[in-house]
């Protein structure tokens, strides 16, 4: 083993470190959950009250007031889903072609991912803002979807490329010998093998879109705003609505928690595979 800390003290030390770190990681979330049940006036009282009369008025607020929670959620979901579908549909054949048919494919993928990932998002957002303004697409879902696809497609190709490279070529050669066409081989041999990789890529790109802040901040004003951007509307000219903000945060955490509980294993695997290959 790496550090053979033996004996009781060692066990207590590592356990203590783990517990301290977990408290540090989880405490802010717990605090926000707690505050979401307080009134706005109670949110910042000193000393903070642990015992109080819980209220769900903040949650009612989020759903009923100007924040239009349901339409914002719809925006976020549609933007993430359509963008992900586009990325998967474009990246699958591209990664296949680069891996199997183009000799310099590997170099192209490495170069592409590095140049795409290093360029600052804001440098893409400025020209896109002008383009969208001229095309009268500002404040539409399409504008945000286009920005997300531009930003995540190289990543999608790179991940998919890694997964295709790990599928043995012999399977496909057998299919080709048996008279399968290229597209047929892709559909019948590669895709079934690729399903976990496909899933991981789709999950990661939709998470990237779900978390994206800068593009919707710049490209939307009202109708197409997404969850991260609308969080800012709880801090208003007449003062912040902390209780509402906390309830809103909890509502954005919940779907992610459920999503990750369901897809956890694939997620971590895809994450690691994507990061390490290529």
């Amino acid at each position: 083993m790496v550090r053979p800390l033996r004996g009781l003290t060692a066990a207590i030390l590592t356990c203590g470190a783990l517990i301290v770190y977990c408290i540090w990681a989880v405490f802010p979330i717990l605090w926000v959950v707690l505050t979401s049940f307080k009134t706005n006036a109670e949110a910042l009282t000193v000393p903070p009250q642990l015992l109080f009369r819980p209220t769900i008025s903040n949650y009612v607020d989020v759903f009923t007031s100007v924040y239009q929670f349901s339409s914002v959620v719809e925006n976020s979901i549609v933007i993430a889903a359509v963008g992900t579908a586009a990325i998967v549909l474009l990246a699958l054949p591209a990664a296949y072609g680069l891996s199997r048919l183009i000799p310099w494919g590997r170099n192209a993928v490495s170069f592409g991912i590095i140049s795409a990932r290093t360029f600052p998002t804001i440098g893409l957002a400025i020209p896109l803002f002008i383009v969208m303004q001229n095309a009268r697409l500002l404040d539409t879902r399409l504008a945000v979807i286009i920005a997300n696809v531009a930003y995540s497609l190289p990543f999608g190709i790179w991940m998919m490329f890694g997964f295709i490279e790990s599928i043995p070529i012999e399977l496909e050669e057998a299919a080709l010998l048996d008279g399968c066409t290229r597209v047929g081989a892709l559909a019948r041999v590669i895709v079934p093998q690729l399903l976990p990789g496909l899933g991981a890529t789709a999950i990661l790109t939709s998470i990237v879109a779900w978390r994206e802040y800068l593009f919707p901040l710049i490209l939307t004003t009202r109708n197409a705003r997404t969850l991260p951007v609308v969080a800012g509307s709880f801090i208003t000219d007449v003062g912040p609505n902390w209780g509402g903000l906390c309830a809103y945060s909890v509502l954005t955490i919940l779907p992610i928690a459920i999503f990750c509980a369901v897809t956890g294993k694939i997620l971590v695997k895809g994450f690691v595979a994507g990061a390490v290959k290529g």
Partner: peptide, 9 residues
Amino acid sequence: LIPAVSAYM
């Protein structure tokens, strides 16, 4: 978590 939301938290 969404980074922007945790920043607001």
